[in-house]
Design a protein around this nucleic acid. Sequence first.
RNA 1: GGCGGCGUAGCUCAGUUGGUUAGAGCAGCGGAAUCAUAAUCCGCGUGUCGCAGGUUCGAGUCCUGCCGCCGCUACCA
Length: 510
Amino acid sequence: MERFYLTTPIYYVNSTPHIGHAYTTVAADVFVRHQRQRGRESFLLTGVDEHASKVARVAAAQGLEPQEYVDGIVESWRALPARLGVSPDFFIRTSDEGHKRFVQEFLERIRQNGRDDIYQDVYAGLYCVGCEAFKTEDELVDGKCPEHDVEPEWIEERNWFFRLSAYQERLLALYERHDFVLPAFRANEARSFIESGLQDFSISRAGQPWGIPIPWDPDQVAYVWADALVNYLSALTYARSGEDLVERFWPVARHLLGKDILRFHCVYWPALLLAAGYEPPQQLFAHGYLLSGDRKVSKSLGNLVADPLDLVDLYGADAVRFWCARSVSFGQDGIASVDGLRERYERELGNDLGNLLSRVTAMIARYRDGDLEPSPSADSPIAAILEPLADDVAARLDDFDLTGALERIWEVVRALNRHVESTAPWQLAKDDARANELDCVLWDLLDGLRVVAIALAAYLPEASERILDALRQPATLDWREVAYGRAQRVEGLAAATPLFPRVDEPSLTV
RNA sequence: GGCGGCGUAGCUCAGUUGGUUAGAGCAGCGGAAUCAUAAUCCGCGUGUCGCAGGUUCGAGUCCUGCCGCCGCUACCA
């Protein structure tokens, strides 16, 4: 079976983690957990991008070396996946020695590929000293940098350039595979960009103290995209000491990215790889943004939105994961608000799913003293409902349809609640002659919940485990268990404690 | 300007290659039930499918024009 290697972008440490970072990280984790359930050898990579002139400047302002500075703030970035229930197989930092060494090798490979793909030229542009960045004409207001109200200087800098223009045809050939970049409209954007003609870009910057030195010209450091993108490959070379994972996980790589960095991932990166003699990644998926849709700004709410970890404290990692996957169609932009999170938590997690577990376990405990023998029946409506679930969900997740797969599972959750109503076990319990019927109904519900729990495990790892435990079912998450009729007999099953108890709304006033 | 996309019930959106009475969730109204975290289930929508034409036996689904909105259009994590 083909291996599965998925990456998030590496996050820029100069900001603090916000909901957008959590979003990508959670999505990546769901995909990887699901593939593992299907027995696929998988690897999840995330990490941070630490090389930027801004980092050096902030560090200097605090009287620190850049490395000291990033060493200090990287912990808040490591905490992000940890608190979201995400366990990356490796957390890369671009200041890792292994990464730096590999970037240098990588650039050297391009330079020596015999096609003269790296050459020296002059990069000229309008440079704002305040921003420490080059500006384009349309960024200026009245010829001045709008942020600093100064006229930028015309600066010419001798840099090393990458001959991107030579890769137009080879890049376009990649896009003949219809799912190279998803969603399709993003592939169109990237393709039309390529078709419009590619210009070479500089891969080095002069006069920067913080970065990876260009091996053949140590006075220059690698420009951000010649450094950061390479992490997807470099990580594989040193994530496991004494082991090179490149053979295992390249080129079966899939990159998750935000739509803002589409071009760099879908154009620059494949070209750099081709130039260095590597296969391009297998697939790229650009997701949209979670737009803040919160009611009037208050300090407490503002903080909640700014820091996803606060939301985890309040509602739990599973709730935040669920909200990420559920509230916005993956790939599209959408509104995400704390109100929406609470709504989903109460209505869907608490009422639909949590209460389903409560009522089913309570009935088994009450009507059967918690004992139940397996009693599957081929003509059970539950069998028909569960039968197509495993394939449907798997197919959607293979297509990065994070939202659609979850909706598919939720249809089953709703169907189970309907089944409770239509069979009315509390009525059957009144009639001893229908004891057998009641056994079948209760066991079907037990089995349905078991299937839902396993199907949801990638999204709600904690709740999934708690459901299986409450149902006295094995903790195995093997995807083949997402099928009707596999629940084991239970003994002494007790009414479950609420899965997603009500959470007091945080105070909205400061 | 160029390329691409969107505009479907109060809200958020589904609607395969054109084909029976246009769907889901949420909100609203009414009802049932009582196993359950007052949690669930059922019923209820005269929606100009942005506007105007066209193709077709038949179009939300194809074509043209118009209106409105959005994305991309190079060195910015």
